[in-house]
Design a protein around this nucleic acid. Sequence first.
DNA 1: CGATATCTCGTAAACGTTTACGCACGTGGG
DNA 2: CCCACGTGCGTAAACGTTTACGAGATATCG
Lengths: 351, 351
Amino acid sequence: MPTPSRRRQTRPDAPEAPDASDAPAVSTPRRRATIHDVAEHAGVSIGTVSRALNDRAGVHPDTRLRVLASAAALTYDPDKAARELSNRRAVDIALSVAHGYRRLTPFFGLFLQHLSEQLAVEGLQVREVASGDDGLPVRDADAFVLLDAHPDDPRIGHLARSGRAFVLVGHAHDVRCVAADDVAGGRIAAEHLLRLGHVDSVHLTADLHAQAFADRAHGFAAAFEAAGADQPTTIVADDASTLGGYRAMRAHLEGGTRPGAVFAATDELAIGCVTAAADLGLRVPSDLSVVGFDDLPELGARLTTVRQDIALLARETVTLLHEALAGAAVRAVRLPVTLVSRGTTAERRNR
Amino acid sequence: MPTPSRRRQTRPDAPEAPDASDAPAVSTPRRRATIHDVAEHAGVSIGTVSRALNDRAGVHPDTRLRVLASAAALTYDPDKAARELSNRRAVDIALSVAHGYRRLTPFFGLFLQHLSEQLAVEGLQVREVASGDDGLPVRDADAFVLLDAHPDDPRIGHLARSGRAFVLVGHAHDVRCVAADDVAGGRIAAEHLLRLGHVDSVHLTADLHAQAFADRAHGFAAAFEAAGADQPTTIVADDASTLGGYRAMRAHLEGGTRPGAVFAATDELAIGCVTAAADLGLRVPSDLSVVGFDDLPELGARLTTVRQDIALLARETVTLLHEALAGAAVRAVRLPVTLVSRGTTAERRNR
DNA sequence: CGATATCTCGTAAACGTTTACGCACGTGGG
DNA sequence: CCCACGTGCGTAAACGTTTACGAGATATCG
């Protein structure tokens, strides 16, 4: 076995360890182990270590085990910069939320989490989450993910004109985009409610300017029409927050009408709605059935809702990102939604 | 002048450009320019390019200009992975929000934005924003920033025990942490209100278990006591959302008491409070003065509030991060707050 | 039993940057 | 006029990975 070539250590700055005593004191911010350390520890070469850790073929099972053990013993964590550099994978992806983090809805928060997980799997990185006050991404990047965009968002035209790779999470014409099938979502919410006998439903939404909300409303209304039922009343809240939903619903209920069910365009609106009903002494679901949209984990643990698969949304986003980078043809994808029936809907009571 | 050594291009995969025709079509996802391209374009060496672009000494002004022009012409953007690798700056910083992005408050959203800007200035990266459902960061990193932590958050003990570098944004004993001076904030809110003649104020808050809220309440009450005024009533909302503030305040106002002023522990609570007052026909500020906390840009454009400097908070966080990495002594820092008086407070009316 | 295929692994090049070092020019003073 | 020196720049090493290539060892086959 050839002696492992000594690591070169020529750079003369080394500002880290003030006392370079070799004993690794318990809480010393220890130097990160590199692949060389693992190789030395396991008595193999760095090539073998890399192959073993990346599940590449051509390494003996025993050796692999030994390498894995060494890596664990040294708490080896591959340097991401080096890996990216070597992989030619250094794709900068800028995430552009219309107004930065500050207006991040729980839905987009969850999406972000899935997206960065998905990208991490491929060794990619979300490099930036920001946009200037003009809404334009503040730095240059190889690809952009646009959140929260109206069809006429200035960012779309800007990115398209400059030939940048980007994908829109939402829906618009002639751009690469991905979104849940909102129309279908509205429809299955309606069908669920109709099946329970609720012909007197209302739709609680906000800002029908937003494509997603318009589509959900449309799907909902269309299903009622198809069933020969009366068109549902639409209530438009000031915004899509829980407070918006609460006030709009409370005002509506206090107006004297007592719908048997409400389809909220968002889980947040639904929560506001449920809260308003409770404050007015109405029991959910016996007095009022409520269907939400999104299926956010902890927000509506007990909410009957139209579920969209956020993990899938993130995966599709990444797929489209790759297509954009490769210069493929523009494509719009619609993701299926399902109704998950939980505790906030029940059969219509006779009054 | 020595001929610039031809770039090596030996790697045989090159899955990118299907047709390697040299003419750069307008919307072709062009190969990123590297420092070598800039060097060739400007007729200098890569070392000179690097020095010119990084404002290092030892490059002739004329040359510098030429390099800058070439870089601009090629839209050169240095590869971050390579830069980090070379710089030994590859510090992985994990941001740990108690429950991931999903419960990100506007305040923390804004903080995140400032933090990543601040880190970007130093060439550092926030590598991950996530934590598992157990609240523990999901990957290993060189340093951690903990958000949203109660003093007895399990993450603190875990990180401390394992000797990791971390800083807590908030306040707890015996850990490196940074937060606004919440007690002072409560005090100046009280002093502002007292100055306007409001001796019958209430405090709207949520979850006094949270250190920040407890401190704000304490500072507020202490100032009233110091002024010889009656202790303010405290209203505890279900949560710190706008809806929480709305419901708590509405219930209180409907209970018959009509305080002249309220100090909300959060701008969000304050918004809910203002909305509740409006819905009950009370005018702000003539019927009810409202003071918030945080000074979130678009949320409370017209809100009188206790301002904390979020950019400063981010800068201090980075400073502490460096100290943590360097193994310095633990230190807790308190940031000053100021009262910004806007449209939601007025002098007490005689009734 | 010798030639050859197969498996395992070590070596080195490459990714794109920063920076220490040294060389070739000048310019100044003795 | 020569030497010392400063200025501007090119060269190459280094950061920590991945991976093509080739070499040695072992197994397989004629």
